[in-house]
Design a protein around this nucleic acid. Structure first.
Length: 431
RNA sequence: GCCGCCGUAGCUCAGCCCGGUCAGAGCGGCGGGCUGUUAACCCGUAGGUCCCGGGUUCAAAUCCCGGCGGCGGCGCCA
């Protein structure tokens, strides 16, 4: 049997605190003293201190960080050891000698750009481990919420031929002898799928060729989208509150250790329970004007305004009822007040901003065609989307949730790149 | 697309303003030391196309022009 097959997880070793066991992992830290070598060994479950008599393991003292090891020895409870338990190593059963590891504490402390250049290595760090474990829980909790609430998971295409939002932000792809695009939202496909399944959701990548240079934009991001038949805007808002609060609850329940390692304050997370604050666009304009912003009714709410708004609230805000011209063409106008749409955004607190955009869709063909024209677009480009309105159309609503943005807020990251293993932005496509 | 900032050792940075012992520090590497270390510590040592090109000058990392690369913010959005 290969020696590494006998190993137990480090977390399990820390729990036992005694007995002879085999461990495997990577060298997280190493300190060589006159008579002893201390090694902090890391695996996916934790970190434990190894103690090796220097005379017996002379050939190991020059091991570089991140070298891989399989060791056997006795576990001992030891207050001087980080974590309270250490292993007195008796034999080293397997070694892979790594070259000098290029990431050091200076680069980490500076949160350097370099960490993105060596991202393929940096994802080994305890910080990235913690973030990626939380990300795993976030995705799982989204699936869990939708499935428990009667939604079917569906899988729309990534190659498309018509824009959802307009057209300027699509990535072109050579597709045999023609050009197609990468999807920027699965919404239109979800709208088609409700006529069979009524309540549908998907978690899929969306691609946007926007040259955005901000801490909350990527060119490739994970989009959790849902659509429900026989539903108005308020129904979609309830689902949005439901899924966010469920995800947060799940992370608080399962990822306390990771949140602690990341130094995340959990009070703001604990407050994210429904109902979120409801603020109409009209009220928001009032609030902002009183704060001294130069904003008139009909203007869009920019990033600074969004941040200022969220400062007044200690949990997520549902901003609703935007003017027609600041939202995409497919939003249904309020029949009682046609100048505003039945649209909403969910804003995260602490300055994190928009995480959900959604609302009720136009369900009548004529109204849709008219609005497409009013927006200066060509109805022919949306032929099948319009066609959906010709055969038993019903009121329906949905939203798109930025999963990376949600994760960013949950872990308290400064940049959306910090929560994605291999982020893609306007310039970075490798590693 | 618009505005601002940056580029010096493998990594993090100082030096630039006011040109002339300015080729520097810490980490990492290598060599040695050290009574159990907690990002260990101490001593020694190797390591650089000062982003590239041009200009000014007796003299340029430093000043000027152009280019390339990177970062942050806005707009747009999730």
């Amino acid at each position: 049997m290969e020696p590494y097959k006998a190993a137990i997880p480090i977390q399990e070793a820390l729990r036992r605190g005694e007995g002879k066991v085999t461990l495997r992992g990577w060298i997280h830290r190493k300190r060589v003293l006159k008579e002893k070598i201390f090694i902090l060994l890391r695996d996916s479950t934790g970190v434990i201190q190894l103690v090796l008599p220097r005379d017996k393991f002379k050939d190991l003292e020059d091991l570089n960080l991140e070298s891989a090891l399989v060791v056997t020895g006795a576990l001992v409870k030891e207050p001087r050891a980080p974590g309270g338990v250490e292993m007195h190593v008796e034999s080293v059963d397997w070694v892979y000698r790594g070259e000098p590891y290029p990431i050091n504490e200076d680069a980490v402390a500076a949160d350097s750009e370099y960490l993105l250049d060596v991202r393929h290595l940096w994802i080994r760090s305890r910080k990235m481990q913690a973030v990626l474990k939380i990300r795993h829980t976030v995705f799982g909790a989204i699936h869990e919420y939708f499935r428990k609430n009667g939604f079917y998971e569906v899988h729309p295409p990534m190659f498309i031929t018509a824009a959802v939002e307009g057209g300027a932000t699509l990535f072109k792809v050579q597709y045999f002898d023609k050009i197609v695009y990468l999807t920027q939202s699965s919404q239109f496909y979800l709208e088609a799928l409700i006529y069979g399944l009524e309540k549908v959701y998907t978690i899929a990548p969306s691609f946007r060729a926007e040259p955005s240079r901000t801490r909350r934009h990527l060119t490739e991001f994970w989009h959790a989208e849902m659509e429900i038949a026989w539903a108005g805007m308020e129904d979609a808002v309830l689902v949005g509150e439901g899924v966010i609060s469920h995800v947060v609850e799940k992370v608080l329940d399962e990822r306390q250790e990771e949140l602690r390692l990341l130094g995340r304050r959990i009070e703001p997370l604990e407050k994210a329970k429904p109902p979120f604050y409801r603020v109409s666009y009209d009220e928001a304009v009032d609030i902002l004007q009183k704060k001294g912003f130069k904003i008139g009714w009909g203007d869009d709410i920019g990033a600074d305004e969004e941040r200022a708004l969220s400062q007044d609230f200690d949990k997520p805000i549902v901003l609703y009822g935007f003017p027609e011209k600041v939202k995409a063409f497919y939003h249904r106008n309020n029949p009682r007040r046609p100048e505003v749409t039945l649209s909403f955004d969910v804003l995260l607190p602490e300055g994190y901003g928009e995480v959900i955009g959604g609302g009720e869709r136009i369900y009548q063909a004529e109204e849709l065609i008219e609005k497409i024209k009013r927006f200066g677009l060509n109805p022919q480009d949306y032929w099948w989307y319009i066609d959906l309105r010709r055969y038993g159309s019903v009121p329906h609503s949905g939203f798109g949730l930025g999963v990376d943005r949600l994760t960013m807020w949950i872990v308290g990251a400064d940049h959306i790149r910090d929560v994605v293993p291999f982020p893609r932005d306007v310039r970075r496509t490798a590693p």
